[in-house]
Design a protein around this nucleic acid. Structure first.
Lengths: 202, 202
DNA sequence: GGCTAATGTCACCATATGGTGATAAATATA
DNA sequence: TATATTTATCACCATATGGTGACATTAGCC
């Protein structure tokens, strides 16, 4: 009975991944080392090498899980126009960013490191990322007068930066990102930008 | 003759700060440790403790220098309106961000760490930062219908994120931040946002 | 000159990191 | 039951980190 046994590889692997994931979610990538993972999992670090071949293997495993964790797509909705849709999706994305510390830690990791293992993680992350904005390329076309990808990149970049920034210093450019009120201002400003940009455009 | 002497405290201090600064500019804050600074400066690490009291002292010193390094204000100009001014200043700021790797490393540091020594660094950085956008609060008032600080925060956050991102993965949301062409798209998109937001507003 | 204080050198500590080889213990297989 | 293989433990290595006490050397000063 392999599943009730104390010595169970699958079970140990799960413990390792769970520990690594929680470490990444709570402490960030800085705390993600072989020793700390082994300690947190209550497992000898040798097993991390035996089962995953080292950190890269663990990261790859996490990258795979990532697709499932944040894989839920935004609820399909009837959108009136491109601006409405973009605004709605951006709002949902911002909400997710603010809720999922893990996601912010991964985004910060992407900014800090450009090792090979990071690239696989980024790929998985950007797949889930794409789930939100794939819809933008759907039935509703963006006005051709506007460089929608560039506009979206600016808005997304801003949301990434501001949510990460909220975790540390908490304020930026006069905004207090610890308060719900100022987050509402950000949200409103983003909506204004979208609506003004696409107003009367085709 | 204290200045030609081999044993010269002021000279040694300068070497330490120079090494630390270059390390920060070239390698980023991750590489900023006592041992590496001492090695790069060709100085015994004990002296870093003797003269600066440790890393915090070094960082404080760098923070002070920061005000001078990036202290040059944007050239005063006659602006027609708030949108023109904002667009011009943002363009200048983006240019500086793209040119100064050091600045990007500090911004990333601010995102990653929230220790006390970082707060002093951030203060100095945001002073210089303010030099650019102080002007926005100048004679030309922002239209009261628009939440200008929130709009500015979004644009600045985006520029920070995109310039940092260009150093590592180099691409984001469909843009290739290694190419001048796509940076031009970012620049144009930002200008569009500013002009559309402030158009017909008072 | 010679004394004192500043400046710099070096050896050492504790701790943490990633990584591995040899061995023990439990499990599956014959 | 006996054997072979998987699973896990442990001791150890090399390296790097921050930090300090004891000592050597040079400088300025009387």
């Amino acid at each position: 009975m392999a599943d009730t046994a104390i010595r169970n590889r699958a079970n140990t692997e799960a413990k390792i991944i769970k520990a690594a994931t929680e470490l990444l979610a709570n402490e960030g990538f800085q705390a993600l080392g072989i020793n700390k993972i082994a300690a947190a999992a209550g497992v000898d670090k040798k097993l991390i090498y035996s089962y995953f071949g080292g950190m890269e293997g663990v990261i790859e495993h996490i990258a795979n899980d990532l697709k499932l964790w944040f894989g839920s797509e935004p609820k399909p909705k009837e959108f009136i126009n491109y601006a409405e849709m973009t605004s709605e999706l951006l709002g949902q994305y911002l909400k997710t960013l603010r809720e999922e510390k893990m996601l912010r830690h991964i985004l910060l990791w992407e900014l800090s490191d450009n090792s090979d293992s990071l690239k696989t993680l980024e790929q998985s992350r950007s797949i889930m990322f794409g789930k939100w904005f794939m819809q933008m390329k759907g039935e509703l076309e963006s006005p051709s007068e506007v460089d929608a990808p560039a506009i979206n990149a600016i808005l997304l970049a801003a949301m990434h930066y501001l949510t990460i920034r909220a975790d540390t210093l908490g304020r930026f450019a006069g905004l207090d990102l610890k308060t719900e009120a100022d987050w509402q201002r950000v949200q409103n400003a983003a909506s204004s930008i979208i609506h003004e940009i696409y107003k009367d455009k085709k």
